[in-house]
Simulated scan of single mutants.
Amino acid sequence: MPSARKHRRKKMQQIPRDRKQLRRKEKKQKSTNIACKEIRNSWDASKTLQQNMKEMGLAFNANKALPIPRKLPLPKIIQNCDLETKSAVKKPEVLKAMEMEVELGEKEKQLRLPSDDVQFCTYMLDKYKENYKGMCRDRKNVFQLTPKQIRDKIRTFKRCKGQYKLYLDSKQAAHTDVEMKT
C-alpha cells in the first residue's frame, strides 16, 4: 500500500547573485538615453545635467540664457549672450559638431509606396485628375475608400519624390509622343 504521506518537490533555491553588479546594471538602465551623438560622447555621468550643459556651451533654461527685456533690441541681447557662454565653455567640440550638423541639413526620408498603391494612384490621376468623388465611385476602388482616404493616398504618392517623378516623366513622354504624331 502506498504511504499516506505526500511527497512534494522541493523548491529550488535562488541562485546567488552579485547585488552590487545588479545595482550598477539598474543604474545604467535608468540613465537617460541621449539621442545626440556629440552630447552623448562628451557627457560626464558624475556631473549634473546643468553642469554638463554649461560645460558644452548649451543652455539648460532658454529663458535664463536669453532674457528678453522690452527696452533693448533683440540682436544686441544675442551678441551679449554669445560672449558670456563662450568664456564658460570647456567642451567647444560639441558646439562645433552640432553647428556642422545643422549646416549639412537634415537627411530626407525616402518614402516609397507599394507598387499596387502606385498603380492605383496613377490610374485614378490619369482618369479623374483631382475629382475624388469620381474616384470613389470607380470600379477599381476595390477597398471602397472614401474620397478623403483617396485624397490622402494620392498626397502620400505625391510625397514619394522618386515614384511621383517617374509618373510625371511617363506622362510628359506620352504627351510629347501625341504632339509629334499630330
Rank of each mutant, 00 (worst) to 15 (best):
M1I: 15
P2A: 14
S3N: 15
A4L: 15
R5S: 11
R5Q: 14
K6W: 14
R8L: 14
R8E: 05
R9M: 14
K11E: 08
K11Y: 00
K11W: 05
Q14V: 12
Q14D: 15
D18G: 05
R19L: 09
K20G: 06
K20A: 12
Q21V: 13
E26V: 08
K27A: 07
K27C: 01
K28H: 03
Q29C: 04
Q29D: 01
K30S: 04
N33T: 11
N33L: 12
I34E: 01
I34F: 05
E38D: 08
E38S: 12
R40L: 09
N41C: 15
W43V: 05
K47H: 10
K47Y: 12
K47Q: 13
T48Y: 01
Q51W: 02
K54H: 00
E55A: 08
A59V: 04
A65T: 01
R70T: 08
K76C: 06
K76W: 05
K76Y: 10
Q79V: 13
C81V: 10
K86I: 02
S87C: 03
K90E: 02
E93N: 08
E93V: 13
A97D: 05
M100H: 03
E101N: 03
E101D: 02
V102I: 05
L104Q: 08
G105P: 06
K107I: 09
Q110L: 12
Q119S: 08
Q119N: 09
F120Y: 11
C121F: 01
T122F: 02
T122A: 10
L125S: 10
Y128N: 09
Y128H: 13
Y132P: 02
D138G: 05
D138A: 15
V142I: 13
L145E: 04
L145D: 06
Q149L: 10
I150H: 06
K153P: 03
R155P: 00
T156C: 08
K158V: 12
Q163S: 03
L166Q: 04
Q172R: 06
A173G: 12
H175Q: 15
T176I: 14
D177Q: 15
T182Q: 14
